[in-house]
Amino acid sequence: MHRLMGNGPGRHLTRGFLVTALVTAGLAATGSSATAASVTIDLCAVPGTLALPGDPTAVDVPFWGFALPDNTTGSCVGVPARVPGPQLEAATDDTLTLVVHNLLPGGHTPVPEVPGLEPTAESTGTDGDGNPTVQVSYAAAHSGTYLYESSGDAGRQTAMGLYGALVVRPAAGQAYGPETAFDREAVLVLSEIDPAFNADPDAADLNDYLPTYWMINGKSYPQTDPIQASPGQTLLVRYLNAGFDNTSMALLGLHEHVVARDAHLLPQAFDAAAETIPAGGTEDTLIQMPDITPPVTAGFALFNRQLHLTNGPTTGSPSAPTPAPGGMLTFIHP
C-alpha cells in the first residue's frame, strides 16, 4: 500500500495550522477549532549531525531525529533532522494520525509511540520516494502535554534523538480548560546525549551509557532559549522528559503551580520550587510572574538541580578544575 489516506507524497493536513511547528519557547498559542477533526502529520525519521558546544571546542555528534517533510515537495529526502522533533499540535478530540517515513540507516524501523494516547489503527506502507512508512492513528481525547517518540531498537532510537512534544489543546490560551488559562507558554523538552553512544548506537553497551550533554529543547546553556513572560502574566511551562534520568528542575526565586502530570490534571495542584519530572513523563506548571527584580539580569534561573550543568567531557585543568557553566539551564525573564 502506497499511502493510506494520502494523495501524493508529503504531509496531508486536514487542518494545516494545527501542525505548525512551534519550537520557540514562549510563543503564544494558536487558535483551534471547536470541531473535532482528523489530523494527519507526516514525520521524517532521518539521521543528522548535531553541533554541540564543547569545552573547549564544539563537537559534531551524529543523531537521529524527526523532521517535517519539505514544505513544497512533501518529500523527506534531504530534510535536516532536528532534536527534539517539531512540536506537534492537535485539538482535543481530534483523531491524530502520524505517518513516519523511515530514512534511518538500514535495519532500523521506527516504532512511533505517544504514551498516554491510545492507538486506534496501525499500518505500514511506502512513500513516493520509496521509503517505508509506519502509520499510527490516535484518539486525542484528552488535552495535555505528550511526548511522541520512536522506541525502536529497545529504546535506542529514543536515545538517538527520535522524540518531540505533542500538545493537545482544548482552546486557545488554555492548557486543560479555563482553570489553566495562561498568557505565555514554554514547552521544554528535557533530554541528554552521550556522544559515545550516538557514535555507535547499534553496538554501544548501555551499561556504559554516560550522557555528557544535558539539553533543554536540544540545546545546552549558554545556547538555550530564554523564556520571556512579563510581570502579572501567567506562564505555562510544559515539561517533557525525553531523557533517561528522573530530572529535578529547580526554579530560583519563584514557585510554580503544578497543575498536571502526564497530561492529566492533578486532583490537588500544589506549589513547588523544585520538581522532579520522571523519565518519560510530562508535567505542566503555571507561574505567576511577579513584579520584582530577578536575582540576576538574565532572570530567574531554571536549572537541573542534579547539577548537570556542564557541556561535554568535563575534566578540567588543574588550575581550573571546573568547566564553564552549561547544560540544562535557562532563565525566565520579565
Binding site: 528522573n246 529535578s248 529547580a250 514557585h255 486532583p267 490537588q268 500544589f270 506549589d271 513547588a272 520550587a273 523544585a274 520538581e275 522532579t276 538541580r305 542534579q306 547539577l307
Partner: peptide, 21 residues
C-alpha cells in the same frame, strides 16, 4: 508541604525527595 508550601496531605512509607526539594 513541599518547598515551603502546604500540599494536600498524603501518607507515606516511602517518598522520593527530589534534588533541591
Amino acid at each position: 508541604a513541599q518547598d515551603g508550601r502546604q500540599v494536600a496531605r498524603t501518607e507515606h512509607f516511602g517518598e522520593t525527595i527530589g534534588s533541591g526539594q
